[in-house]
Design a protein around this nucleic acid. Sequence first.
DNA 1: ATATTTTTTTAGGTTAATCTAAAATTTATT
DNA 2: AATAAATTTTAGATTAACCTAAAAAAATAT
Lengths: 219, 219
Amino acid sequence: MTSFTEENYLKIIYKLSAETESEISTNAVAELTQTKAASVTDMLRKLSEKQLVNYQKYQGVRLTELGEKLALSVIRKHRLWEVFLVEKLKFNWDEVHDIAEQLEHIDSEELVLKLDQFLGFPKFDPHGDPIPDAQGRMPKSGYKNLSEIAINQSVVMMGVAQHSSTFLQYLAKIGLQLGVEIFVFEINDFDKSLTIKIGGKKECFITTEVAKNVLVKVF
Amino acid sequence: MTSFTEENYLKIIYKLSAETESEISTNAVAELTQTKAASVTDMLRKLSEKQLVNYQKYQGVRLTELGEKLALSVIRKHRLWEVFLVEKLKFNWDEVHDIAEQLEHIDSEELVLKLDQFLGFPKFDPHGDPIPDAQGRMPKSGYKNLSEIAINQSVVMMGVAQHSSTFLQYLAKIGLQLGVEIFVFEINDFDKSLTIKIGGKKECFITTEVAKNVLVKVF
DNA sequence: ATATTTTTTTAGGTTAATCTAAAATTTATT
DNA sequence: AATAAATTTTAGATTAACCTAAAAAAATAT
């Protein structure tokens, strides 16, 4: 009913919608799908015919309720498979994205149900992202960005807001991994860069850009 | 490098090759791919260009060494995923084929390696079919068809040579499942149909067609 | 308010995988 | 060996997803 490609478009439109209030532009979609704007226009027309998006030419897109449901089901599958890959197959969390990108399109409700059960109904994936339930409801994480934390506060790292390998590998290098304690030692007034203490030991200097992409839980 | 569709053709040509000595005909492939002969001709030309098959028009096809390697890698993935679905996710063995049909095309060597390890390097899938190793070598099962077993012999059921849901459900209904003991009670000279005793209890009448598709281990 | 720039769409084309109908080749039958 | 039947291939179309180049619309700057 919906192709691999259509599912990818829905997922991308969903992600963009989470970041911005207004309609999603053709160009924004083109950038994430790695295609040209003209191709996006074609696909938006098609998705619109299938009632998966609301689209008026030159006015951007929005997912319909049905489209959002579908997007969430793909995201659910992606994140469940990531849990499987890390927890069961012992992949590193920075190696699983591309494989999950393929697995998320496997079509079988029964499979998702049983996988979820096998994994013990996880609520978050290995990057700390919430896993929608079978009805498409997202658990609320309550996590904050490290950049919002006040000086002298202690927090625990719970996830990331960016999934590129380079970023994840940088985190690994400086010792930032899920579960570590982070103490905000100093915040530079000028550029908001910060000095943190990781796991009560290592001191480390990071830019605000990095801090924005680290999700933490406040005690 | 090789598409989903190309992989399916290779797999089907491999299966047909296992049954017949001579070249595989276009029509035979068309039947299993559920396409028309004309489409098969197109694809055979393409596979031939890619050095995956040897193909002379009007003369049928054969896999090249490279083609066979690829086919075996797809079959390996299919069977490993079937083990996962049955052993870990608790699917019934007659429910897993269609899902494995999708999973077999997931592209990641690392994934196959880790899945194999996670499953404990299984040698046979839930239908008793041998799982090729990473080098494409098939373990020898030594299993026989139930139709070859002499009268008054006792054997254990180890697999099936046919995977349709209807067949598997028929077996389930008469009580034939992996691991049961089968005693050949009587063989009808006329049509080779047989009367068997299942698990030392139930007596049961089956056609030779059924017996041909049941794999058994002789003590 | 008009002109310029940027964004988006249209028009027309490409490739992979399929199809139908007709032509060519091989196989089987007399 | 000639003809009929079956199989296979070719020719020409179709659909999904993409592309480039040109045109149209919207946003921005003067």
